[in-house]
Amino acid sequence: MTMTTKMKTLLLSGIALAAMTTGSFAADVTLKLGHPANEDNTWHLASVKFAEEVASLTDGRVEVQVYPNETLGKEMDVINGMQLGTADLTITGESLQNWAPMAALLAVPYGYKSLEDMDSQASGDLGARIEAQIVETVGIRPITYFARGPRNLTSNRPITTPDDLNGLKMRVPNVPLFLNVWKALGANPTPMAFSEVFTSLQNGTIEAQENPLALIKSANFNEVQKYINKTEHVRSWIYLAISEMSWEKLSEEDQVAVMKAASRAQAFEREAFMTEEAELVTELEGKGVEFVEVDSEAFAAAAKEAVLSSVADDIKPDVEALFNR
């Protein structure tokens, strides 16, 4: 059974269990959870797991209704709805820096050396300070976080050190931080819409691009790129968050239950995420792509000054502290 099939099975069983748990009587509180992922995505499956656990742990007093595929609106729309009281929960990350500057720390290039290192920061003092600022300035409360697949560089020649980039024409998102970092590393980055990347790689307008493995596979970049260089230059996490207005409607007992449900959803999502990442490597290798180990320390050292000069002054000391560990 493939991971996708397993996920669908878990999803259906989760919905069925949640329906059995809450269907016999009306919930005291109904919470709407809107997010951008599709039904096969681990974030959606974890959201369904969360809803199932909330129903079980509150004996049906609290019901979570999950709306995938931007059904409740795009990310910013849902966040605005959470501030106004028309939405209750969402999955969101560094976009929150529009209100809370520290949210930019969720996705700092070369800020986190490994998944374990990221976990220690997200669940430690840094994560606590980020979450506190989000509560204070946005009016929404992170209750757990999910890992995101690290971004990797694809190309048609192996890249192991910054010296190997040497003017490499590559696509980056239209984010000044990304542009500045790749220029500092020696590449020739250009902003481009994601929808144009495959054709541009195919006709040679660009020679490389960078994205997580899931997007590399779904976009079929393996058809026009020979190597996936394990730069893992951006490791990041994303929050499952609840509106403060909705949080305050819950009794203390149900708040404890919601936090426990969030913890269980995180464990569920992490297992699914790790399995999916391993399967993506196997599938992409099966399609003829070669994975290349890189000198991560050399990349981080070359990127440091560009990162520091590109981030907001509010978070510069925290970014510097990440680099200097």
Rank of each mutant, 00 (worst) to 15 (best):
L106Q: 12
W99E: 04
M259P: 03
T190K: 09
V175E: 00
M259D: 14
P173H: 06
A107D: 06
L215T: 15
P173R: 08
Q65G: 03
E136D: 15
E63H: 09
Q65Y: 06
T154K: 02
T42K: 10
K287C: 03
S155G: 08
R157G: 01
E131G: 08
V66D: 12
N324C: 02
Q121I: 07
A241D: 01
N38K: 10
P142R: 03
G14Y: 07
M118I: 09
P158S: 09
P68Y: 04
S95C: 00
D40Y: 15
G286T: 07
L17V: 05
S24D: 15
L31D: 11
L213I: 01
A46Q: 03
A107V: 04
S296D: 09
G186V: 00
M245I: 11
N203H: 12
N41T: 01
L280W: 09
L106P: 04
S155Q: 07
W99G: 06
V307Q: 07
N166M: 05
M7I: 14
M7C: 09
R151I: 12
L177K: 05
T42V: 14
S296R: 13
D125M: 10
S243A: 06
V172C: 03
L179W: 08
M118G: 12
A306R: 01
R141H: 08
E136Q: 13
A312E: 12
D77N: 10
A132T: 07
I315R: 06
L168D: 03
A303W: 07
V197A: 05
E116M: 09
F198M: 11
N180W: 05
S56V: 05
E232G: 04
D163H: 05
A18K: 15
S200K: 08
G81Y: 05
T160K: 13
L57Y: 13
E75V: 14
V66N: 13
I143C: 10
I140K: 01
A265C: 06
E70D: 15
L10Q: 11
V48Y: 03
T90A: 07
E70M: 14
V289P: 01
I206R: 01
A103R: 02
A257E: 12
R129M: 11
V294S: 05
N324P: 00
N222Y: 12
S56M: 00
P142F: 02
G85A: 12
E232P: 00
K113D: 02
E305P: 00
K249I: 02
L105Y: 02
S263P: 05
T90Y: 04
Q65L: 15
Q133P: 07
Q225N: 14
P212W: 05
T2Q: 14
S218E: 13
K249N: 11
P162C: 08
A303Q: 03
S200Y: 02
N174G: 00
S296T: 13
M118A: 15
L179T: 14
S200H: 10
K230S: 08
S155R: 13
V281F: 10
H233D: 08
D318T: 08
F146K: 04
K8C: 01
Q83I: 07
I140F: 07
M170V: 08
A193M: 08
R129K: 14
Q266T: 04
D40S: 10
A55H: 00
T21D: 14
E196W: 06
V319Y: 04
A265D: 07
E52V: 08
L57G: 05
E253P: 06
L33G: 05
A46R: 00
E53M: 14
